[in-house]
Nucleic acid binder design. Structure first.
Lengths: 176, 176
DNA sequence: AAGGACATGTAAAGTGTTACATGATTGT
DNA sequence: ACAATCATGTAACACTTTACATGTCCTT
């Protein structure tokens, strides 16, 4: 169900095509809710048939630009306020960490350094965006708040990786 | 693919039945990779047929206790060292946060307070476990390291929620 | 004129959830 | 005896990924 509300929410803020939405998922949105174009396009057609979104413009190459209807925005509001949040998350990096005991200490440290590096790059990317991006729409202002969550999470992930590296016998601070 | 390695990893540390594994997922493992018994039992039968796990004991009510074979442990090692990690995660709470601009400030604050409360309860639970649980097997020692990741992340989530509450006009520190 | 980006779609396979289904054992 | 827990399984449906499929427009 979440994908449809993700699309409705994005189309409540700005009108966009499926192609634009796909890029959005590849960039920011996919960090918390991945989706491919093969899932997005059929869902848009469903939402359109249900009257939750409407076509506001057509462009070259069959491009269709959608925006959420009043019903669509109401559906997002209902979801946010009445439908209980699914709190549990799915994280393969953390799943893998449960099994670090099956690796040699050196292999485990390699994993933890990769983990740290990945989040460090995220963090660098987020800070870059913070520096050069000025949110304009209401949706972008909220995205800016979520971006900050990414910063907090990445910093926590890096701090944990450093702590875990000590547990796995890392004394140096290589690749920090 | 991840579920099979989660099961193989758990059964590399301790022999367990599908029922035991299901409880494991309801407790610790499900925090990072949820799974129900209806997914676990068929996967165990597949792993058994493939020779990656074997039955070590049978008990009352058709209980079957499994453990990973040498091949099974090798499969986990291969996964951890050779198969690239899927870094992106799936988090409905963060997805919802993208759309807080569609709520009234008071509704947004309610969501953020619920968010903070949920992570605070997680954190309390984690600290409780840290206090009374002494890891014994190698797998449990690694789980202890992952538990610490939960602590870091919950603390970061709470810190972010407090920051976000300020953005959404919260001055008091209610429900902290 | 050619390559890359734009643009949309479907089909098949794989993964995950909910609901259905059954029965044995243990503790009170 | 009854209730709770233990214990396993399947079926239908929903969601997600990968692969297939097609064609247009823009820039150099």
């Amino acid at each position: 169900m979440s994908l449809r509300f993700a699309l409705l929410g994005l189309l409540s803020d700005q009108s966009m095509s499926g192609y634009d939405l796909t890029k959005r998922f590849e960039q920011s949105m996919g960090n918390v809710w991945p989706a491919r174009h093969s899932q997005i396009y059929p869902e848009l057609n469903k939402l359109n048939k249900e009257g939750l979104i409407e076509i506001v413009a057509e462009g070259p190459r069959g491009r269709k630009e959608y925006r959420a209807t009043e019903d669509g925005r109401a559906a997002v509001h209902h979801w946010l306020t009445e439908i209980p949040t699914e709190w549990s998350i799915r994280s393969e990096p953390m799943l893998r960490s449960f099994f670090l005991w099956m690796l040699s200490p050196e292999e485990a440290r390699t994993y933890l350094r990769d983990y740290r590096t990945w989040f460090q790059q995220r963090l660098d990317g987020y800070n870059e965006i913070k520096q050069y991006w000025t949110p304009e729409t209401e949706g972008e202002k909220a995205s800016r708040v979520v971006l900050e969550a990414g910063v907090y999470q990445a910093e926590a992930a890096i701090a944990w990786a450093n702590w875990a590296l000590e547990q796995y016998g890392d004394t140096r601070d290589s690749d920090a």
